[in-house]
């Protein structure tokens, strides 16, 4: 079995990995829908989004590999970074690693929870990419320029779904409200400010995600309002995926995602 790589501890690198892992792990979840979505057209739309996210993650991992080489002389490629880290070295927010049906209601997932999460994350990524257009890291700004167009479409498409289902039939409204209740507690984590974000903001690398909170909230609130959904209150719960401390679901996801590279080191298409 292929051993894990160890990641140099630097705020700059972690900042880039947080974004890269957000894209990759959500893509992995969306990939589980492939061939199973409620209708053929949306099956293609979901996997399109997954592939867009993987493309973004690839660019970010390549960039992170360059950063790593600059920081401590070891260069990792995108596959090593994507597939050969231990769970604690992934820095995505917990929201993206949650199963497609958090309450175990259906395999391969609950469509309401899926479209809601896509809308939440796409809305966040639009804000992140927009701010990254002004990054003083030219490579990051270039990645943002390509990714922002994809993220805008994801946001539009999945916000539309949230409104359709929330403001739809009694059953669909009930299921969207249920999904919102399940996923909303994971919002707090997205905008926690910490040393990594502060360092990135100070250096001009990218925005502290905490500064995006107000815009994100107002965008989500207008979507949820149009969807006739009640926004739940946030309580003290705050997940910790961005610090590498994940939910119980992450290990299973990684086992499936990493299996091939672990069992067949360096395997390529």
């Amino acid at each position: 079995m292929q051993a894990s790589i160890s990641i140099h501890d630097s705020p700059e690198l972690r900042y880039v990995l947080r974004l890269a892992d957000t894209c990759l792990i959500l893509a992995q979840r969306l990939g589980q829908w492939c061939g199973h979505a409620p209708v053929l057209e949306e099956d293609i739309a979901l996997t399109n989004m997954a592939l867009d996210l993987i493309g973004q993650a690839r660019a970010l991992y390549t960039h992170a590999g360059d950063l790593h080489a600059t920081l401590n002389g070891v260069r990792y490629d995108e596959d090593q970074l994507a597939f050969l880290r231990d769970e604690r070295d992934y820095f995505n927010p917990t929201l993206v690693e949650l199963p497609n049906a958090l309450d175990g209601s259906a395999a391969p997932g609950d469509f309401a929870q899926t479209v809601l999460r896509n809308c939440m994350i796409a809305s966040l990524l639009v804000l992140v990419w927009t701010a990254l257009l002004r990054s003083n890291d030219k490579a990051l700004a270039a990645i943002a320029e390509k990714a922002i167009k994809e993220a805008r479409y994801h946001q539009q498409h999945y916000a539309d779904w949230v409104v359709r289902l929330g403001d739809g039939t009694d059953v669909s409204a009930k299921r969207m409200q249920h999904a919102l209740g399940l996923l909303w507690p994971y919002v707090s984590e997205l905008f926690v400010e910490d040393a990594i974000d502060r360092a990135a903001a100070t250096q001009g690398l990218g925005p502290a995600w905490s500064t995006l909170r107000a815009s994100w909230m107002s965008q989500m609130q207008s979507v949820l309002e149009a969807a006739q959904l009640q926004v739940p209150q946030l309580n003290a719960f705050c997940s910790t995926g961005r610090c590498g401390v994940h939910s119980e679901h992450m290990g299973f996801l990684l086992a499936e995602m990493q299996h091939l590279q672990r069992a067949y080191p360096g395997a390529v298409w």
Binding site: E41, I44, A45, Q156, H157, D160
Partner: peptide, 8 residues
């Protein structure tokens, strides 16, 4: 339909 056409 427009969005699905774009995706498909």
């Amino acid at each position: 339909a427009i969005q699905m056409a774009r995706d498909v």
